[in-house]
Amino acid sequence: MGEKGSTQTLIGGSEADKPRLKALGVGVYDPGFARPLAAMMHRQLLRFRYARSRLVNAILFPLVWLIFFGLGWSAAFNMAGGLARRLFGGLEYLEFLAPGIVAMSVFTGGFGSGLGVIWDREFGYLKEVLVSPAPRPALILGRILGDSLVALFQGFVMALLVSLVAGFPGPVGFVLELIAAYMAALASSSLGTLIALKMRSPEGFHMVVNLIMMPMLFISGAFYPVTPLPSWLKALAYINPLYYAVDLSRGLVYGVHNTPLLLDAIGLAAVTAASLALVVKEFSRIYIA
């Protein structure tokens, strides 16, 4: 720190001074893109390690659906016999539900990422990040990648639990299911973050997220097929990343799907890319006022 005084006249605004300054390396660093991205990603993983309640919560929520919703309806549909089987593409209801539950747990976990942004603003950490020279896209992408990795881990645990109830889909199906779920998590992390950037309070965030997430869950095809739905609802399903993720993983695991699998993959990639682009654009506004 002692070199300050001797080099101060070199720290100048003129173009000629800048190369000399760099050569001296007096505490002027270039963060680049990858390091801040990795740092923010690492931070989300560290935070997860320190907050176990989130893990418990993320597993309990879908598990409650699987048990109280899945087992209940499964029993009811068994009464309907063959008719119900036809509705679910020849699958047992629990089998039909299983890929959806995995995608859902990852998807809802991703939305929680937005809540982290709200708390970061509340506790001021957002400012610490915004005043850094790191590129804003690197910061927000790192964060979303980290959060979706956490969500993926939750999905992994969930997929194991679901396998116990609905049967193991085989290693390939298991992995493919998780990849589809990860794409959905990227999309939901982006959407959650986007909402968080527009919201001021945690309460407002919860309200909007529930308002958006619940319909997305229900018209995702996770709980019931979207085929018999009125066309305006079906149209909504086609901009729903979770719909593509569920259809894709159900197709990959059981060979039962509504849309061609390639279209599912493209649709999922497109919706995910669009949400990522939106959130990067929103976060990259230079000034906070």
Binding site: R35, Y50, G124
Partner: peptide
């Protein structure tokens, strides 16, 4: 800043090293 801007869930050294990486040290 006037109000704290730290990640309260992480340790001091983690906060430090994150800051360093975000700033390219």
């Amino acid at each position: 800043f006037q109000d704290p801007t730290v990640d309260r869930d992480l340790t001091a050294i983690h906060n430090m090293l994150l800051h360093a990486r975000i700033h390219g040290v």
